[in-house]
Design a protein around this nucleic acid. Structure first.
Lengths: 397, 397
DNA sequence: ATAAACTTAATAAAATATTTAATAAGTGCC
DNA sequence: GGCACTTATTAAATATTTTATTAAGTTTAT
């Protein structure tokens, strides 16, 4: 078993201070005192010890807020690093982040098909080992690895039941820790998306937020009581298989009418290819793969193509129906549309809002805002790193 | 504004100790130390001070657990009291509890129709004032009032948007505090039912539990991360208006196909009355009110009447469909069937389980147990009191 | 049966963590 | 310049945990 904390501090407060500063970027002693719920003198003391140990640096004074100007602190960027891995069905992206959230190497992307691929984990591990090899003596500074991946992930047990099998009894997390020699945290990709919104996006400082991951499938990341929520065994947010439609399309899961059979980019892409083949007139041309088709549809829709907009509007309305159910159960303050579908968020938001008006109790619909994510493509890598830093801040002694 | 803590202790730990002892009934110093996450000597010290102040008493030694036998502590029963009020559409029950969870007067029940009743709150307040009048000098010992009630309740704002209007800008909570001179906590009845399970029933020590309130309507109380969950504005758990059916019965809320139009005791009672009138043969006879009809149906079902069982089985299956959706979203470890429908829980559990098998992803269905509540009729009064004690334990200084 | 070894529980003393209160230092505004 | 406000520093007081010690039982091996 890998010892979880790589750097041994003498008090828990120091772990929390570093974690907070990582998420804040910069902060004054007062900010930290307030956010950690500890007194200023106590925070000052630990802060100074961390400055002496060169983990934290003073960044000078900020403008006054109507009184004595606050001294600003930040993390020493190259004192610690985080390994961050974002895995999807086709590609895996790997980054190494410093304490100022900068990538210290260009992000590496490898093609790694997860489905029915027994060697996926071995290839991933090998690639990671190669990349880590470049770190030299800085390797010891890596405090952990955060992994975002699709599938049924049980975070507590460190297992992914769908992909990246270890082909043995060993859990995926233990396997990775054994090969990478660092603490590893794995999490479902939709949850990581939600974490990104919580730490760097629109969910900051909010309590109850649902992040819809619109892509090849449809996922849900839940922020409940200001924290990521994963349910009892880690499968909370299985939006894709709730029954939503009257057309009884058979789903992979064996049931009929699942949201996934009706409202994903995959469904839209396949449907467009069929309909165009059958003579449907549009600015859209058939392209060679459904993946590229979905991108073409989104591009066309953003250019104003009526057919593409129609397809996405229909998808949006069905997603809205599912969100209506979600709102009845969870009563969140904000719904964020994220994932690849966020590209056409502006087009989706109207039919979604319409579905909410139609299927929600008015009081509930009124109290819930719907917004499109502003986070870019690197968000999932930053959030996978956040996974590590969050645990770092919870390190007990 | 009413000062929330009636009794001023010098440390927060003392409030938490009293709260814990209330819920535990009796406990050893070690039990308390563990459950509060504080060291034994620290707990001991506060415990002794509370014994000196006569809030807590020693109850002698418990049998050894393999070592030195632990000293057992309990609350002094008549040092503090809690006012507990459980309100439903027709009847309101009022109790006064001591610190050993005993009613110090027989529970009073008054008939109080909530619907379209402008005077409901005035009548309630008058009754409560009369009952409190009997307390004499013990009145000061009441540390608060807990109110369980139907409707859209926003606990943070202290408002019930559906019933018991104050006919003014003042919140219901403020109104009650002003008239009763004590801290008041109001909560939705389904949530209180969940709290009862959390504190005294099957949800004890569990993290994520859904309590289905099967009655005249259908409600949901949610335990998330080991605590009552109410969502952003307090309306989480609105199970009754999620779309579930293909038969498009119009619901009061204006939508079609809501669970409430298909699977409540009210629906079952009305349907039985119509069908029997139309000549349906059964051991059931028509009674004069739907309320009594529903009780007759449940009694007949428990006696083995096939028609009654059929009606309830159909209701159960539809409730199961809704629970399937719930499980996909929340991934709870336990579903508890509560409310008046728990009387026929044994009959409902089979069709519910069947619906889960049919509509849930297998992994999710496997990880979720379904049980029938064991709590009796007084549970909601005890839980309303728990509302008060829970806040008492959170009293800061 | 009985002593030795092992539990669990309670207590006292010492060490550490954390807050409070008082004060100082800087800024902006009248 | 004086006042209100925010931030920083220090000393003293308080809260809390850790460690070691004692007490009171149970279990196991003879």
């Amino acid at each position: 078993m890998i010892a979880r904390p790589t750097i041994p501090f003498t008090t828990q407060l120091k772990y929390r201070l570093i974690s907070q500063l990582y998420f804040f970027g910069t902060a004054s002693c007062n900010d930290l005192s307030e956010s950690l719920g500890k007194s200023v003198p106590h925070v000052t003391k630990s802060l100074y010890e961390l400055i002496d140990a060169d983990y934290i640096v003073e960044k000078g004074y900020a403008p006054s807020n109507g009184g004595r100007p606050p001294l600003i602190y930040a993390l020493q960027p190259d004192r610690m690093y985080i390994l961050s891995v974002s895995i999807d069905q086709l590609y895996t992206r790997i980054g190494l982040l410093d304490m100022s959230n900068q990538f210290i190497f260009p992000i590496e992307t490898i093609e790694l098909r997860l489905l029915n691929n027994k060697d996926a984990l071995a290839i991933l591990t090998k690639t990671l080992t190669r990349i880590l090899g470049r770190m030299g003596k800085d390797r010891k500074k890596i405090i952990g690895g955060g992994f975002s991946m699709p599938g049924f992930v049980n975070t507590r047990m460190g297992i992914n039941f769908t992909y990246l099998s270890t082909n043995s009894k060993e859990s995926l997390r233990d396997y990775l820790e054994r090969h990478l020699h660092m603490p590893v945290y794995i999490e479902n990709d939709s949850s990581v998306l939600a974490l990104a919104e919580l730490k760097a996006g629109m969910a900051q400082n909010l309590q109850d937020v649902m992040v819809i991951d619109i892509g090849w499938g449809i996922g849900l990341g839940m922020i409940v009581k200001g924290e990521l929520f994963r349910g009892h065994t880690g499968y909370a947010g299985e939006l894709s298989h709730i029954p939503i439609s009257e057309s009884n399309t058979l789903c992979e899961c064996g049931k009929r009418g699942c949201l996934e059979t009706e409202a994903t980019l995959r469904v839209v892409a396949h449907r467009a290819m069929e309909e165009i083949k059958a003579g449907r007139i549009s600015s859209l041309k058939i392209v060679d793969s459904p993946e590229k088709m979905s991108e073409a549809i989104m591009a066309a829709a953003n250019q104003g193509d009526q057919y593409a907009i129609g397809l996405l509007t229909e998808m949006g309305f069905k997603i809205g129906k599912a969100i209506a159910i979600l709102i009845h159960i969870v009563n969140p303050e904000l719904i964020i549309l994220g994932g690849r579908g966020a590209e056409v968020g502006k087009i989706l938001i109207a039919p979604i809002q319409q579905a909410l008006n139609q299927y929600c109790i008015p009081r509930l619909a009124e109290d819930t805002r719907v917004k499109v994510s502003q986070l870019g493509h690197d968000a999932s890598l930053l959030a996978a790193a956040a996974l590590v830093m969050e645990k770092f801040g919870q390190t007990a002694l």
